[in-house]
Design a protein around this nucleic acid. Structure first.
Length: 465
DNA sequence: TGAAATGTTGGGGCG
DNA sequence: ACGCCCCAACATTTC
């Protein structure tokens, strides 16, 4: 048999479920379709497009080592897949399943076109460890509360196996003349300093993390200046690393650990992968979250319209050091420490009273790990509009958070040169020490005042105003 | 994976 | 010595 394998954001050879299955059937023609709906999508942005193209280039190189060519085409996926099916005389298409509404609709169009062409299409589970339909409540419904989902996830008896990379991919020699577009003609300048990406880099990063930092993950992951997070998020986004590989290696390590602190750390790390599965199944089961609040009552929140405040937040000029440090790190690196993502997101929604979708879109444009289901889930969590959400009244105090999580001010000093000589004692409240911080701007809003306004805003939406 | 407002307690200053 | 007040320190409630 001969099949296409259509790579999307599963750009690896190891533990690639659909690719593995395709290889077992016989000959395989690996392909990537460059889709303008992706390349020209303003909510994706140059950082992720550049990283995607880099990951495709790295994949293409490793496929060559396995004896195969990666065929890259540019156009509408339904048209290009069918065209390639005919050109390569393949009987079917294998690919891995996606869950967000655009991808679901696209895949339905492709499936129709493939069937109309008289061929078979075979989707596989690959993006997650467990899909939504594998983790259901006793009543058979999808979970809408994380903790319960996690308990059920952890109780699963059979974790999916980690599949090896195919030793050799049987690429039909007579297809060497198939055309493939030159990736270089699509190359795009990222806005931030994006990292190098490849499957080998991803696997090394995971190993380094599991050899060391994971053992104090429970306590150190919340320290943005130490920054001992795993840094695998962009690999999970583009599929240079599989979540099953991550979980399987973490569980194997856990089995060897006795020290409670180490055990707790590894468990906390695994639970972050569970969050990821959780948000994918939420997006799959409740696709309306892509547009609006998970809880419809919060669709009536009257968010503020204030382009000046929005821009100040985006550029890191709010006058709250921890917020500005985070937003400047995002702009420079295309990445922000998770703790600071929560603080900056809370500030947008509950101090500037701006719609969480503005923040979701801005994060999406810059983040190298921007995964729609995960980004959306986390923003709705912070905004209090989502499933299992932080209650609307749980409002971060940016100064308290700063003192608690960056006590020495090292993170702030790294990203805000105006404050680089300010001692820890004064760095969290620069407006109270104007003589020490002459270069740094004054707060654009007053937290105590905004907090009350936020409570009123949510109260009105709940029909209690 | 909150913070502020409000309530309670108890030590110490003081008349 | 005693009652009163103040106010940390801690606990509970509320948003």
């Amino acid at each position: 048999m001969r099949n296409l394998f259509w790579f999307r954001h599963d750009l690896r050879l190891h533990d690639n479920t659909g690719l593995h299955a395709a290889c077992r059937t016989g000959e395989v023609v690996p392909c990537v379709i460059l889709d303008d709906a992706f390349l020209k999508n303003s909510s994706i942005g140059p950082n992720r497009i550049a990283l995607f193209l880099d990951a495709v280039a790295a994949l293409s190189a490793s496929l060559e080592k396995s004896g195969a060519r990666l065929i890259i085409r540019h156009g509408k996926p339904d048209v290009e897949i069918v065209r390639l099916l005919k050109e390569s005389k393949a009987g079917g298409v294998y690919h891995n399943r996606d869950y967000e509404p655009y991808a679901v609709a696209r895949d339905a169009r492709v499936a129709r076109a493939v069937h109309d062409a008289g061929a078979e299409i075979t989707p596989h589970k690959d993006l997650v460890v467990f899909e939504g339909h594998e983790i259901l409540t006793q009543a058979g419904n999808p979970y809408a509360v994380y903790t319960q989902f996690k308990n059920s996830w952890l109780k699963q008896e059979l974790f999916p196996a980690v599949l090896p990379a195919p030793k050799r991919i049987a690429f039909p020699a007579e297809l060497n003349a198939l055309t493939s577009v030159d990736l270089k003609t699509f190359s795009i300048e990222p806005e931030s300093e994006v990292p190098e990406i490849s499957e080998a880099i991803a696997r090394r990063r995971l190993k380094d993390f599991l050899d060391d930092d994971v053992l104090e993950y429970a306590t150190r992951r919340d320290d943005p200046s130490a920054d001992q997070t795993s840094k695998i998020s962009h690999h999970l986004k583009f599929g240079t690393l599989s979540p099953r590989t991550v979980v399987s290696q973490a569980r194997a390590l856990l089995a060897t650990m006795r020290k409670p602190e180490s055990r707790k750390s590894i468990e906390t790390f695994i639970s972050e992968i569970v969050w990821r599965d959780f948000f994918f199944q939420i997006m799959a089961a409740f696709p309306h979250v892509a547009e609006g609040a998970f809880r419809p009552q919060y669709d009536s929140v009257k968010w503020a319209t204030n382009p000046t405040h929005l821009k100040a937040w985006q550029e890191g000029r709010t006058g709250y050091p921890i917020v500005d440090a985070g937003m400047r790190q995002l702009k420079k690196m295309g990445w922000m420490h998770n703790r600071v993502r929560m603080i900056t997101a809370s500030f947008l929604c509950k101090d500037l009273l701006i719609d969480w979708r503005e923040g979701e879109n801005y994060f999406s444009r810059l983040l190298i790990d921007g995964e729609p289901a995960v980004n959306n889930g986390n923003w709705q969590w912070v905004a209090g509009t989502g499933t299992d959400a932080q209650p609307y009244f749980r409002i971060f105090n940016p100064t308290t958070q700063s003192e608690r999580f960056d006590p020495d001010g090292d993170y702030i000093r790294r990203w805000i040169p105006e404050l680089k000589d300010v001692p820890a004692e004064f760095i969290h409240t620069p407006s109270e020490h104007p003589l020490l911080c002459p270069e740094y701007i004054l707060p654009i809003v007053e937290h105590a005042v905004q907090r009350k306004k936020a409570l009123e805003m949510y109260k009105a939406a709940r029909g209690e105003g």
